[in-house]
């Protein structure tokens, strides 16, 4: 239940990349057969990645992942979809605004968006969004960690970060990680082909999960916009308890989740995202992110719904906040 953190590599992706780890080991810059075979593979992958976001292949810079793709200097950067609660941001509206400003003389105003969470979980079209740069990471898309891409609109000129090689049209020097890029390309092709089915699947499972939580656990609050959000994320605040304790309890029963809050050195750092929704410290501390993947099953959800209420109940029995609330409610009832 932590597919927002990373996703299992698709078997078909592994099959596609294997030859490039074994017999097809060429350097794409080499002129001979092995090199050209690798070059063709990188170009095919580039086309697939471009197709996933409706870009041109020469607008794709292949690199090591989302973080590297985010490491550029631009003026406006907004996540396409939030990684903690899944809320989809109005990038198209911002894109329109940026284009208007650019037409009005602000020539070098660029819009960058981090599409890492959104990719493969909603349609992403750089033309509709109107963004100039978009970061992508393969491992959220059932490909391995360590490969990603930056979409760079034709008119945008970026200073290269890796120099010393001519690869990626001088924008990112260094021999291409061919097998990883092939994996990314295959994952992108599969994501495009299966996008509608994956979205429907994840949305149905999330509805099953949220209905089950609502039915079985009291004092829960679902965080984020219920409509404008990615189909795979459910962020829940459990009142009276703290998220990390719940995370460990679930982990011990084989369920992996994430929490946005952290308490370190005795000072609390509650999730800024949940706080920004207007929730207090207690709800921010009690928030857990459940994230579903294309391979998650009904049985997985039912297992979570079996262990989660018990884990919450165990922590609440310990919680002075809960005991206090029960006492107060009993008084009100009398």
């Amino acid at each position: 239940m932590d597919n927002s953190a990373t996703t299992p590599v698709d078997r078909r992706v592994v099959e596609a990349m294997m030859p490039y780890l074994t017999e097809k080991f060429g350097n794409p810059s080499s002129v001979h057969f092995y090199g050209q075979e690798a070059r063709a593979a990188v170009d095919r992958a580039r086309r697939e990645v471009a197709a996933l976001i409706n870009a041109r292949p020469n607008e794709i810079v292949l690199l090591s992942g989302g973080t590297e793709a985010n490491n550029d200097t631009v003026l406006i950067t907004v996540m396409l979809a939030n990684n903690e609660i899944g809320t989809v941001q109005p990038i198209a509206e911002i894109g329109t605004l940026v284009r208007e400003l650019r037409a009005g003389g602000r020539k070098y105003l660029w819009l960058h968006t981090d599409g890492v969470q959104a990719l493969g979980r909603m349609p992403v079209n750089v033309e509709t969004l109107g963004c100039d740069l978009l970061s992508m990471s393969a491992h959220k898309l059932h490909a391995p960690q360590g490969v990603g891409a930056l979409y760079v609109r034709r008119s945008v000129r970026l200073a290269p970060q890796n120099i010393g090689g001519h690869q990626e049209r001088e924008r990112r020097g260094g021999t291409e990680a061919v097998s990883m890029i092939v994996a990314f390309g295959t994952a992108a092709a599969l994501a495009r082909e299966e996008l509608d089915a994956r979205i429907a699947h994840m949305r149905a499972l999330r509805a099953r999960f949220e209905a089950g939580v609502t039915e079985r656990i009291s004092d829960v609050i679902f965080n984020g916009d219920t409509e404008r959000r990615l189909p795979h994320i459910s962020n829940v605040s459990f009142r009276f308890i703290e998220g990390e304790g719940l995370l460990i309890n679930l982990d011990m029963q084989g369920v992996a989740v994430s929490t946005g809050s952290a308490c370190s050195s005795g000072s609390l750092e509650p999730s800024p995202v949940i706080r920004a929704l207007g929730r207090g410290d207690e709800l921010a501390r009690g928030s857990i992110r459940f994230s579903i993947g294309k391979d998650t099953t009904d049985e997985d959800i039912d297992y979570v719904l079996e262990v989660l209420p018990r884990a919450v109940e165990n922590l609440r029995r310990l919680s002075p906040l809960y005991q206090q609330a029960i006492a107060e409610r009993a008084c009100t009832a009398v």
Partner: peptide
Amino acid sequence: RFLAYGCPPTLACG
């Protein structure tokens, strides 16, 4: 007997 609210170490120490 104890009741505790907070991070896992606080619960365990109680």
